[in-house]
Computed example of a mutant assay.
Amino acid sequence: MIAAMENAVEKIKVWFRFIPREGWFPQDTEGLWATRLSLDTATIENVPFLQDGVAEGDVVRFQTDTDGLHWAVGRVSSAGNCTVRVVPIPTGPLGRSPQAVYRGLSAFCLGGEVFSEDFPMVAFNAPAGADFAGIKALLNQGQDEGWWHYEVGCGTEEWWNA
């Protein structure tokens, strides 16, 4: 029984605090699922919608408060992945469809999540080693042609140099 517990993977939620951006969501926290690695580190397991500077697969350090919440205090290491957020323009050719955004970027096999039906932002994980130049070219083309708006929430040196 003890050996099974030692090998169990513990999923936790790591919370991030940030200053809300003007004209954006009023939230000042975001919780991301993570796999605990030690008493104070965990690997992020999903794509952030609001938090900048962290991507899926990154290892973060956290402190646990008296309520048992795990608050991020810094990034320990990068997995080399990038976070890209795409919002379809309602009056554009994709309408409000997150599925159309996924289809538009499907050649790159990016994983992602949709924020909500009311706000169809798609947060994508662009994995290390992906065709960053191709992804960036398509994102820019889509923005120029009125398909979507996008932002990079976490980019690596490889992303910025692609």
Rank of each mutant, 00 (worst) to 15 (best):
W147S: 04
V9C: 03
S116G: 10
Q143C: 07
D131A: 06
R61S: 11
V73G: 01
E30M: 12
E22D: 12
A128C: 10
S38E: 04
G134P: 04
S38G: 06
T66W: 13
Q51A: 08
L69R: 15
S77T: 12
G74I: 04
G155A: 12
T29Q: 13
L69C: 06
N46V: 08
S106K: 14
F124C: 01
E117F: 14
T41S: 10
S38Y: 08
R36D: 02
N46L: 06
P88K: 02
D40P: 08
P98R: 05
N140I: 13
F132V: 05
T83D: 04
E22M: 13
P98Y: 08
G112L: 00
E117S: 14
N125Q: 12
R96E: 08
E56T: 00
A79G: 01
R61Y: 06
Q143F: 08
H149L: 12
D67R: 14
W147E: 02
E113I: 13
R36V: 06
L37S: 04
A100D: 01
L32M: 11
V9Q: 09
F49N: 00
I135N: 01
R17Q: 07
R75E: 02
Q27K: 10
F108K: 04
V101Q: 01
E30N: 07
D67W: 15
G23W: 14
H149M: 12
S116Q: 08
F115I: 07
I89K: 09
A162Q: 04
P48L: 07
I19F: 11
V73Q: 03
E30Q: 11
P93Q: 05
V114I: 15
G74C: 03
F18H: 06
V87R: 10
A133T: 10
H149C: 07
E10L: 06
E22V: 15
R61Q: 09
E113N: 13
A34Y: 00
F108P: 01
T156Y: 04
W147D: 02
N7G: 09
F115D: 02
N125L: 05
V54A: 00
C82A: 08
A128S: 11
G68D: 11
G92Q: 04
E117L: 13
L39H: 14
N125C: 11
A137C: 11
K11A: 05
I135H: 01
R103V: 07
G57K: 00
A162M: 07
Y150W: 14
Q99M: 14
Q141H: 15
A3Q: 15
F25R: 14
G53T: 10
I135V: 10
W147G: 01
G92C: 06
F108C: 01
W159G: 00
W160D: 09
D131S: 12
V60G: 00
L94V: 07
K13E: 07
V59H: 02
V76L: 02
F132G: 00
E45D: 13
V84K: 00
E6P: 12
A128P: 02
R103L: 13
I12K: 05
P127S: 06
Q27F: 15
I2V: 15
A137D: 10
M1K: 13
E30V: 09
T35C: 02
P93A: 06
K11Q: 10
P26A: 10
G104K: 00
A137I: 06
H70S: 09
F18K: 05
T66E: 13
Q27M: 12
W15A: 04
V152I: 15
N125A: 03
K136L: 08
I2W: 15
Q143Y: 09
E157Q: 15
E158V: 11
E22P: 12
R61G: 01
W147T: 03
G53K: 05
G111N: 11
